[in-house]
């Protein structure tokens, strides 16, 4: 088990290095940070000083090594736009994005899995057909349009829910949470649905397909022949067997949710990392963009690791396979 985790972490290192290289290249070669930071009036001496301060006169590898070293310590320098440490900016915005992504994932799983199970079990019921039609709409409508439609209905027409912002937040240490106030929770509803919609429909279709597949297997027929209750068969034997692929996709989609929060955050003016990123792109604020890129890569790597561990827990065949491979 430990060996397995270690090997996965080792595999993740080159991935992270490549992403680091890309964000560094962006950092070093896209735009001219010196020009941006100096503004209009400057002397040559000031310019050289800044070049030196930023380490831009060093050879490429030294610069890259310094970049990685700093990144490991969570240091990405100053934002060009806001002149504040990037790490601080991101830490400030991260709770908003993570809470949003968490709620969106919750919506996607808690609605998507039961809908998938239902449509798999009762293939021909009218409700299943309704769900499938709904999922088709969910998949094909672009996120921003879903967001705008929801705002139109629930904020503009019905006036039930706020259309932008996080509502009131409560600070717990450095973490600011919207989960503890009514206005914070209300503010989460529409963005979570918007952000989770695509994943919801995807998970629903996946669970449905897997369920149909599993229900055809011999071991389900045999479970019926053993007289097990429908409940035990559908929600025990069948659902558990659909979990392995669902975990993979759902896990990867969680990464996707965080990455694609950008659009939703823009639509709802949600003060998270995605909005920060968009604003940074507008201002060519490279350090923030580079840091964001690395962070997203890190999120994907961690999620992949967790997904693999979950596999390991769900599927005994992998335990043996891996154990034998690692043990001999």
């Amino acid at each position: 088990m430990a060996a397995f985790i270690l090997s996965r972490i080792l595999q993740a290192i080159p991935v992270m290095l490549v992403v680091a290289l890309i964000s560094f290249a962006m950092f070093a070669y896209v735009g001219d940070p010196v020009a941006i930071m100096l503004g209009q009036d400057f002397t040559e001496a000031q310019r050289l000083q800044l070049v030196h301060d930023l380490g831009l006169d060093q050879p490429f590898f030294v610069q890259f090594a310094t970049f990685v070293g700093h990144a490991l310590q969570g240091e990405f320098g100053l934002s060009y736009r806001l002149s504040r440490p990037v790490a601080e900016l991101i830490a400030e915005r991260a709770p908003a994005t993570l809470e949003l992504a968490f709620c969106a994932a919750l919506v996607a799983l808690l609605v998507g899995v039961p809908m998938g199970v239902y449509t798999g079990l009762y293939r021909n019921s009218w409700l299943s057909r309704a769900f499938l039609t709904f999922s088709l709409i969910g998949v094909s409508l672009p996120t921003f349009l879903i967001g705008i439609l929801l705002i139109l209905i629930f904020s503009v027409w019905l006036g039930w829910l706020p259309s932008f912002g996080r509502g009131e937040v409560v600070r717990i240490g450095w973490w600011s949470t919207g989960l503890l106030t009514l206005s914070g929770l209300k503010a989460l509803v529409l963005p979570s649905i918007t952000l989770g919609m695509f994943q919801l429909t995807l998970i629903m279709r996946l669970v449905r397909a897997e369920m149909l597949e599993v229900l055809r297997t011999d071991y389900i027929k045999f479970a019926r022949a053993r007289g097990l209750s429908n409940r035990a068969i559908n929600f025990g034997h069948a659902l558990k067997n659909t979990l392995v692929p669902v975990i993979t996709i759902a896990g990867l989609q969680l990464g996707g949710i965080i990455a694609f929060a950008i659009v939703t955050e823009t639509v709802f003016q949600w003060p998270g990392m995605g909005l920060l990123f968009i604003q940074s792109v507008g201002a060519a604020d490279i350090p923030v963009m580079a840091a964001y890129l690395l962070l997203i890569a890190l999120v994907f790597v961690i999620i992949n690791l967790v997904v693999d561990l979950l596999y390991y827990l769900v599927d005994p065949r992998l335990r043996i396979g891996r154990g034998a491979a690692g043990g001999h």
Partner: peptide, 13 residues
């Protein structure tokens, strides 16, 4: 009931 193929009649999980 006993089925034909024991490789597929038992739930692997």
């Amino acid at each position: 009931a006993i089925f034909q193929d024991p490789l597929t009649t038992l739930n692997p999980l």
